[in-house]
Simulated assay, not measured.
Amino acid sequence: MEKEGELLKFKGFYFQSSVVDYDILEKLEDFEIRDNDIFVISYPKSGTVWILQILCLIHFEGYRNKTDTRPLNLRAPFLEYNVSHVDLEKTPSPRIIGSHLPYYLVPRGLKNKKAKIIYMCRNPKDVMNSFFHFSNMLKVFQPTNTMEEFMKKFLEGKGNFLEF
């Protein structure tokens, strides 16, 4: 792992260091996958949260009938950006887990178990446009003055989570 500003480069992939859990990254390869896990994997701004929300409506009756009022990040946490510190090992099945990991970084068991994987993709131009506006809207992101400046970082692979 090497740090470049607020970005963390781990095995060739950039993460936002202030919200990623280093221990999770180190243990990703051996994360225990259950056969009934459901993973939603995508590049950011590709519709991940929409699909996670739909899956929660399908799978969790308590959420549908409004007796479960937990926020989405507790019902369907992200694997590598588990900002709410959900203990995925103790989470009952079926687990719904989001991720923005590239294929080569996903847990080994995800490649050979029966877990379900929903892979989201979206036109890269739309992703970049959405991410540009999203990152300029939130104060935690370092704003980018122009689309050209943002596109340069995006094409360098640093568009995933820009410096905060």
Score class of each variant (00 low, 15 high):
69 T>W: 09
19 V>M: 03
47 G>K: 05
29 E>D: 15
18 S>A: 10
49 V>P: 03
44 P>K: 02
5 G>E: 14
35 D>I: 05
17 S>K: 11
99 S>F: 05
83 V>E: 01
41 I>Q: 01
92 P>H: 09
68 D>R: 06
78 F>A: 00
79 L>R: 00
62 G>E: 11
80 E>Q: 00
20 V>S: 01
11 K>C: 08
47 G>H: 05
96 I>N: 02
78 F>I: 00
59 H>L: 15
70 R>P: 13
54 I>N: 08
15 F>A: 07
12 G>S: 11
58 I>E: 09
68 D>A: 08
93 S>G: 05
74 L>P: 07
44 P>H: 02
78 F>E: 00
102 P>S: 06
78 F>S: 00
28 L>R: 05
72 L>F: 14
38 I>D: 01
99 S>P: 03
73 N>L: 14
88 L>G: 04
40 V>S: 02
102 P>E: 05
17 S>N: 10
56 C>T: 14
62 G>S: 08
80 E>C: 00
16 Q>D: 13
83 V>T: 06
73 N>T: 11
87 D>C: 11
78 F>V: 00
101 L>C: 09
71 P>H: 13
8 L>P: 07
23 D>H: 04
46 S>V: 05
40 V>M: 01
18 S>E: 07
85 H>F: 12
51 I>H: 05
52 L>P: 06
14 Y>F: 15
9 K>Q: 14
39 F>N: 01
32 E>S: 09
58 I>W: 11
79 L>D: 00
96 I>F: 06
92 P>M: 06
79 L>I: 01
17 S>F: 03
78 F>P: 00
87 D>N: 15
24 I>T: 08
88 L>D: 08
25 L>T: 01
6 E>G: 13
4 E>A: 14
46 S>W: 03
80 E>P: 00
82 N>M: 01
20 V>N: 01
90 K>F: 10
22 Y>L: 03
44 P>S: 03
95 R>G: 04
65 N>F: 15
41 I>T: 06
10 F>V: 11
5 G>F: 14
76 A>V: 05
47 G>E: 04
5 G>H: 10
94 P>D: 09
34 R>K: 10
97 I>E: 03
48 T>R: 03
2 E>Y: 14
73 N>V: 12
67 T>H: 10
92 P>V: 12
91 T>A: 13
74 L>W: 14
37 D>Y: 06
91 T>W: 08
76 A>Y: 06
34 R>A: 04
23 D>I: 02
72 L>T: 12
11 K>R: 15
66 K>V: 11
28 L>F: 10
57 L>I: 13
71 P>E: 12
17 S>A: 12
76 A>Q: 06
55 L>Y: 13
92 P>S: 09
93 S>V: 08
42 S>V: 02
30 D>M: 10
33 I>V: 15
41 I>N: 02
7 L>F: 11
13 F>L: 10
15 F>H: 08
98 G>I: 07
70 R>S: 15
80 E>N: 00
54 I>K: 10
